[in-house]
Amino acid sequence: MLVLTVGGAAVASLVDGLAGLWGALLGASVGGGFILCTAVAVLLTARLPAMTAGAVLLGSWLLKMILAITVLAILDPLDFYNRQAMVIVIVLSLVIVLGAETYGVLKTKVPYVSPTESDEDSGTAQ
């Protein structure tokens, strides 16, 4: 995320000056806020039953959407930032995080064990 923030800020600054810098920094903070909220929700629900954890994660997703709409509504009338830079950095941050999570899930080694019938249960004697 730090690389995206620095890189996005540098490119946006070159393209649109101070407005581009502010747009990239705002985009990084909104995208980082999404990531941070997700990480906190996962950590808080790690020891809860699956149904409860799912409900809390779904509720946190809804809360994130409400917060994102509120932040964007507050920023809408302001003109000190470049909107394109902000949107590009938000989208890139979310794509990077989704890619990292997908990679992590695909590379996780989960043991797969099928229960077999023991000799005692099958009725065979040795």
Rank of each mutant, 00 (worst) to 15 (best):
F80C: 00
Y112R: 12
G7N: 05
V15L: 11
G33S: 05
V89C: 05
L75S: 10
M86S: 06
A53L: 05
E117R: 11
A41I: 04
L92H: 05
A10W: 10
N82M: 02
K109D: 08
L94C: 11
R47F: 03
M86I: 05
D76K: 14
I69P: 00
L67T: 15
W22C: 00
V113I: 04
I35Q: 09
L4R: 12
L36W: 12
E101G: 01
L26S: 00
S60G: 02
L58F: 13
E117V: 15
L43R: 15
P77L: 11
G8F: 06
A125L: 15
I69R: 03
C37N: 11
D121C: 01
A12Q: 06
S60F: 09
G17T: 06
A125D: 15
L94T: 10
L57A: 03
G8L: 04
P115H: 10
V95N: 08
T5N: 05
A9V: 13
M86D: 02
I69W: 10
K107C: 08
L67E: 13
G54W: 02
E101R: 02
A73C: 12
N82Q: 01
L78Q: 14
G54Y: 05
L78I: 15
G17K: 03
A10K: 01
E117Q: 12
I90K: 03
D76T: 10
A53I: 10
M65G: 09
L14K: 03
G7V: 02
P115A: 15
S118W: 02
Y112S: 10
